[in-house]
Amino acid sequence: MSSRAPAHHPAAPAGGGGAAGEALGCSRGGLTTRIHIATEGRYRPLSLVITPGQRADCTQFEPVMDKIRVLRRGPGRPRRTPDSVGADKAYSNRKIRTYLRRPGIRHVIPEKKDHKAARLRRGSRGGRAPGFDKNRYKDRNTVERAVGKLKQFRAVATRYDRRGYVYLGTVTAAALLIWLRC
């Protein structure tokens, strides 16, 4: 018997090995994968990231936003910042609001009840409530519809792929087909 540790394989993914390195996470239903996605108004994906199923949505906000690249009609670098962002309460925290405020991106993110209660408890030191436009928030379902379009592809919905990078390629191919069909 040898007590030698296994050597690092050069082709292994950069996130470490095991289920977490392959974007697999435990949940009640078994092993799951989560697709974090940014879309434009016509339900087409702009950027996506896959993570294990138990990973929180708000932790992947910045990586998804950093991957956005929209080509310009004429010459020039691709555009990296959207005009506005709509998100649900899972993305309601100070870090994300600061991230959006820095480049001047308008956002519609509802405030969580416990955040609102804490702000009101602090009185004038709690600051003012973040702006919220109910009419613009109605357009937030574009993400849900884009995920629905992605899940129409059987390989995306069931994840037959064993490796995380192969599944990311499958989801990317499905996103490209969505763009080509429009």
Rank of each mutant, 00 (worst) to 15 (best):
I109Q: 02
V64M: 05
P78S: 10
A175E: 00
A20K: 04
V108I: 01
S3E: 12
G15S: 14
D88V: 01
R136V: 11
Y99P: 03
S3F: 13
H107C: 15
T32Y: 06
K89H: 05
L46D: 04
I35L: 11
L48F: 09
R101A: 15
Q152M: 09
K113Q: 14
Q152I: 01
R136D: 12
R77Y: 05
T98M: 10
C26W: 14
A90G: 15
K116F: 02
T158E: 11
Y160R: 11
F132V: 05
K95Y: 08
A20L: 12
Q152K: 13
A23M: 01
S84I: 05
Q54G: 07
A11V: 09
Y165M: 10
R55D: 10
A11C: 11
A117H: 11
I109A: 09
T158D: 10
F61G: 01
A118V: 01
T32D: 09
C26F: 12
R73N: 07
A146Q: 04
T172W: 10
K113L: 13
R80V: 15
G29N: 13
A157H: 07
A155H: 08
I37W: 00
Y43W: 10
E111P: 00
M65W: 00
D83N: 07
A129M: 12
C58G: 03
Q152E: 06
I109G: 03
S124W: 09
D66F: 06
V70C: 13
R42A: 14
R154Y: 09
Y167K: 10
L177F: 05
K151N: 11
N93F: 03
I178F: 07
A23G: 01
K134Y: 08
L31Q: 11
R106C: 00
A118M: 03
P13A: 06
G131H: 13
D133Q: 09
I37K: 00
I105G: 02
G29Y: 06
D88M: 01
A87V: 01
Y167M: 10
H107V: 06
V171E: 02
K113W: 05
G131W: 07
R79W: 11
V156P: 00
V49G: 05
G29M: 09
R122L: 15
R80D: 06
S27G: 15
R122V: 08
H9L: 12
Y99T: 11
R163E: 12
E111Y: 01
A118L: 07
K112E: 00
D161Y: 05
V108A: 01
P10W: 05
Y137I: 00
A5Y: 10
R42H: 14
R94D: 13
A20R: 03
T98K: 13
A117E: 14
P10S: 11
R181M: 10
D88Y: 01
K67D: 00
G15D: 14
A90E: 06
C26S: 12
Q60G: 02
S2H: 08
R55H: 10
A146N: 03
I96H: 11
K112H: 03
N93E: 07
V143W: 03
F132W: 14
R79K: 14
E22L: 04
P10I: 05
P6T: 10
R94C: 06
